[in-house]
Amino acid sequence: MSGEPEGFAQFVEAREQALQRTAWLLTGDRDLAKDLVQTALVRAWPRWERIKRRDDPEVYVRRVIVNTWATWSRRRWRAEKATGTLPEGPAPEDVAADVAVRLAIRGALASLTERQRAVLVLRVFDDLSEAHVARILDCAVGTVKSTMSQALAKLRNDPRLADFMEAEKR
């Protein structure tokens, strides 16, 4: 296709799995995660040269992922819920322990608000700085800090995570 920005294909190849992991933590659904990352990449394409000049492209793509997901969440509340228990089974290399952690994390994250989940995923999983998260979510650093502490407080009392948190500490 003419007009493909330089370095875009390499970025997709290198980062698509990592982006899908972040998207999965936000959505809790593998198919939706793929959908979300594809949509974000399609949206990033026309602005790629400008993004590269001004910003870290990955931060920009993550921002699009978070914003698109927020839009979808708002828009889809009336639609029939995407089925979470589709008969596709676990990923091929899954072991029981990983599945248990996955279910617990997915359930626990689903109990957070959208913003809390986004802050937690970007800050804890993607290991971005508070300033970076603030830029992605278009809010103040103080808001990131307070949202983060609310999310952690909520998860600390989540019974689904209690055993795993204890085991990790040991």
């Binding site: 493909e4 698509e16 990923a91 990983d98 948190m165």
Partner: peptide
């Protein structure tokens, strides 16, 4: 707790995802 949670999230998300091909993105852009 933050580090513990990070470890759990990494374990939870550590699974193979279907590959996103550049051609799919090209089609989407078109």
């Amino acid at each position: 707790p933050q580090a513990t949670l990070g470890g759990l999230m990494t374990t939870a998300a550590d699974m193979p995802f279907p590959q996103i091909h550049i051609e799919t993105i090209r089609r989407g852009v078109r």
